[in-house]
Design a protein around this nucleic acid. Sequence first.
DNA 1: ATCTATGCCTGGTGGC
DNA 2: TGCCACCAGGCATAGA
Length: 272
Amino acid sequence: MPEKPEVITVAKNLKEKILNKKITDVKVLWDNIIATPKGEFIKNIKNQTIKDITTRGKFLVFILDSDVLLIHLRMEGKFTFRKIGEEISKHEHVIFTLDNEEEMRFHDVRKFGKMYLFKKSEVYKVKPLVDLGYEYDSDLLTKEYLFDKLRFKKLPIKTVLLDQSIISGIGNIYDDEILFRSNISPFRKSNEVTIDECDKIIKNTKITLDKAVELGGTTIKSFTSSEGVHGKFQNELLVHGKKKELCPVCKNPIINTKINGRGTYYCKNCQK
DNA sequence: ATCTATGCCTGGTGGC
DNA sequence: TGCCACCAGGCATAGA
């Protein structure tokens, strides 16, 4: 499941491949992926050039001539590149024809991905971007900010760190890693997290995500940034996915449990 | 305002 | 071996 480091990696790879290419056509093979009215999406995107590719939260942000294309990969979204007319696989749902005789195809087994098209002037003023909290590396993300957001919430800290309106970009994997590195139990009620612990969470978020970005993200099951490209952060994971393994610090067994429906890994001894 | 339940999806898994 | 019910999981939405 692509989180911020994977989305950044995808954006970098796409930028090398398709910057300044023009989208000459688009075919939508699965309507639910397009969150903007389909006819409007297709009509408006045609003949716009890709001027830049960046990210906001877990969204890929394609800056076009007059519009901005947002793509959320959700669980398994990825891009494949094929020559025009090559056979379309059953998991390729949106086909962007580029002016270099190539097609950029959105491949998504679960069909959970979402795309939006907005005018540049409004994209940051409306949903979904308007609801996003600070980026993990923003100077505005302070311990006071986080503490204030947690104060009245009774949900477990694990759940609240997944709330994109507080810090944007953390998903289920890095959530577990951040809490392990911060020695905080994922079950801890958010309103019982201290300001010093907020400081730890923010610092460990920056350390963990920066390192993951440097290593090109985490490649497990569903994430490859583009064909043949693999991240290396999976080698740095300390607890997530470590079923039946021992804590790298204290050697007690890592617990695999479920918190508000999310698979969760932690060390009962190290995290309080 | 906060929180829970549901729907969206399909490949993989586990039970028999 | 084959069938099938069940599950993961980010996020929007509706309802409590």
